[in-house]
Design a protein around this nucleic acid. Structure first.
Lengths: 122, 122
DNA sequence: TGAATACATGAACAGGTATTCATATATGAA
DNA sequence: TTCATATATGAATACCTGTTCATGTATTCA
């Protein structure tokens, strides 16, 4: 049953299972996009920004003040959130207000939050 | 209404909103842990491993073969998944079989997957 | 016991990322 | 127009992270 893989010099033990799963794998690109999506949640600053925006729309300097960080750092992170389409913005004079683009986001956030809360006891 | 922040030289525009949200913020540590949790999903290799394990438990060399990567790379990533308690393992002779530790994980994965599928049209 | 093998792991390296700093842009006010 | 300010952004830097390479450990088999 054990055979050598044609690639990368790795032994295969369960050829059939591997081939079966290979066929069920989504396109490479989709899994890449999914990882990129989760990566946006994988930073404390962005998580804190998202949490704040769940409560209310906010302008950049207020977020910076809330989190005790520079305006520049916040602005850079908002750009990441914006390009991931997690937040939208509206301008009012010089002030730019950011808010959530998608309530769906809160569900994902909450599910993760719930998960770590459950694991806290361990 | 506009005041100078005591920290970091940032102007505050909506003092009341900021203070109100500040009180509602979860402990720093929880948001940090949440970001760390999502960070684990934020890598293509780990996402692919998780997807594979949704289908079936697998040994290290089979995963390596499936993904066309070295045994070492997979082993390192399994360690990350293991320490995040996303996977568990059982040993059978020399072979180590990995599987999901928590069905909850699939819900989070699916929700993210659903999200990017919905956004695909844009 | 000795060889083969499935897996783990430490060190090194390359690529990525978050923050800072300096500065640019844009809007409002005087 | 000129100044102040709210935000954006490019470059630089320090830190983090994923893979590779070499090697160690544990188990099976002869």
């Amino acid at each position: 049953m054990t055979e050598k893989s044609p690639c990368c010099d790795v032994t295969v033990i369960h050829e059939e299972v591997v081939e079966q799963i290979r066929e069920s794998m989504p396109p490479e690109e989709e899994l890449f996009n999914l990882a990129e999506f989760f990566k946006v949640f994988g930073d404390t600053t962005r998580i804190r920004i998202l949490y704040a925006l769940f409560q209310s729309e906010m302008c950049v300097c207020d977020i910076a003040h809330l989190l005790g960080m520079t305006q520049s750092a916040i602005s850079h992170q908002l750009r990441v959130l914006k390009s991931a389409k997690l937040v939208r913005y509206r301008k009012e004079g010089r002030v730019v207000y950011y808010s959530l683009d998608d309530e769906h986001i809160k569900a994902i956030f909450d599910q993760g939050y719930q998960h770590i809360k459950e694991q806290e006891g361990n």
